[in-house]
Write a protein that binds this DNA or RNA. Structure first.
Lengths: 194, 194
DNA sequence: CGTCTATTTGAATGTACTCAAAAGCGGTGG
DNA sequence: CCACCGCTTTTGAGTACATTCAAATAGACG
């Protein structure tokens, strides 16, 4: 639970009372590898903050292919925002890539927190804005970069993830087929050897 | 100015005093077609709310190609969020596609408003969240759709823009060359004729 | 071990790009 | 008001980047 406080206090400072109210609004939960926290068609009823493990947030297209929207390591938040905000069915899946511990807060509690502690609403405003910046950068990468450039940019941005992720998942994130990523990698290797 | 109030009151309600404070924090400004409101390398010092006309927010890649991040018709907000939040040089340009009127608020005034009227901070939290949802959808379109599908999805989503925008700009938004969009369109025409 | 999934490799294909040239269109100045 | 200039759009030929499909190999897990 302390991890959550540290995460939030980097942006806004809370009194001990506020900390207590905050923590009491969350539930500690765990899932096993390959479990789903959310499936397409479900209604997303709360927010997820990962403390241990790794999640992925992805969509399934009409041809049955998966597309990774986000990897969610400890210290990061996830859910299907659209479903959460509108109450409509989710378009994304949230699945555990490893055994994962997380904190969960129901929408109703979240809304109460915003009223009782405006600083929490500030925290989430800033969180959303930062996330927006990251999404914009990723969009620009699709508009202006080749697959190889997107791969290298991914490695720079998430060095810790690059190692522990199956290639297939990285391929899905940067928007290429696993076969093509494999070919790119063998090229990159022979390039550096020379 | 009233347009701004209408826009905000759709999400949160304000008292007459709050309305007045809000409006007094903004400046009315105008630019001519082809003028820049922000250039790469500038520091983004405030937020822009368009009341009349049309802006575009784009980046320039290392080969000199433009990539449209956002079109900004009346009722929409824009700036370079990253630069605005960090004080670092902007990566994007904001340019007027037509003579445009807009409201402008300095960062310092914005921060004061957040303190004096928490509902305004709520409005911007929700604005950022909605924008995030839109960005996610666009990301998924690059991961899962062909150029033709992205084009059709763009037309559905922004019917009013489709007509008034030069093809070249639409091409830049959906991530293809103007030549390729032109070929796609002539194909689509012959398809519907049959 | 055996099974299941991930990765590699190759050949054929397709989608989208580049470069070039011509045609169309809008704005501006004479 | 027309002619010209610059920019956008169209069209075509050749090319490159990335996909599909198939088959072989390698790894991970029970």
């Amino acid at each position: 639970m302390n991890y959550l406080l540290t995460n939030i206090q980097k942006v806004v400072s809370l009194t001990p009372q506020e900390e207590e109210l905050l923590l009491s609004s969350f539930e500690e939960r765990s899932v096993k590898k390959k479990d789903f926290l959310l499936k397409e068609g479900d209604i997303s009823k709360g927010l997820i903050f990962v403390t241990e493990g790794l999640l992925r947030n992805y969509s399934l297209d009409k041809n049955g292919f998966e597309h990774v929207l986000q990897f969610v390591p400890p210290g990061w938040w996830t859910n299907d925002i659209h479903s959460y905000k509108t109450g409509l069915p989710a378009r994304f899946f949230v699945e555990a890539m490893e055994d994962t511990d997380y904190l969960w807060i129901r929408k109703k509690n979240m809304e109460e927190l915003f009223i009782k502690i405006p600083k929490i609403e500030r925290f989430f405003r800033i969180l959303a804005e930062n996330s927006l910046v990251a999404h914009q950068a990723r969009l620009i990468s699709f508009l202006s970069m080749t697959a190889k450039e997107r791969y290298m940019s991914f490695c720079e941005q998430y060095p810790s993830l690059t190692d522990c992720l199956p290639q297939k998942q990285v391929a899905s994130y940067i928007g290429v087929t696993p076969e093509f990523l494999s070919k790119m990698l063998s090229e990159l290797k022979t390039e550096t050897k020379r």
